[in-house]
């Protein structure tokens, strides 16, 4: 089982603050995820397999031509909030 410290470390990397209940919850849940990965590890693969699913005849490169995205307005509409053309996010707090 994942330790309390390990869970807190992962939470910190994900910029999440957890309550006491959540720490216990994620200890169990993340442990199950890791166990599942352990199971998957029994399948014989290697790291190379990761990048071998790409069709060999696919053109790997694109010419360096700048083309502005056509639906720019549509893209910006995905933003929850925009201020001065910038994506507005909650203020970033100092890490503890």
């Amino acid at each position: 089982m994942l330790s309390r410290e390990e869970v807190l470390k992962i939470a910190k990397l994900a910029r999440l603050t957890l309550t006491e209940d959540e720490i216990g919850f994620y200890q169990k849940q993340l442990t199950r995820v890791l166990d599942h990965i352990q199971d998957l590890n029994q399948v014989l693969t290697n790291k190379e397999a990761f990048v071998q699913h790409v069709p060999v005849d696919a053109e790997p490169f694109r010419e360096d031509v700048a083309v502005p995205f056509a639906n720019h307005d549509g893209l910006m509409k995905n933003a929850p909030a925009v201020e001065n053309n910038c994506f507005l996010l909650p203020a970033i707090m100092e890490q503890n």
């Binding site: 909030a81 201020e83 001065n84 053309n85 910038c86 994506f87 507005l88 996010l89 909650p90 203020a91 970033i92």
Partner: peptide, 13 residues
């Protein structure tokens, strides 16, 4: 690039 303002963080991609 992110600019930190009191009311939030402004992100320019």
């Amino acid at each position: 690039k992110s600019n930190h303002e009191a009311y939030g963080t402004l992100v320019n991609l």
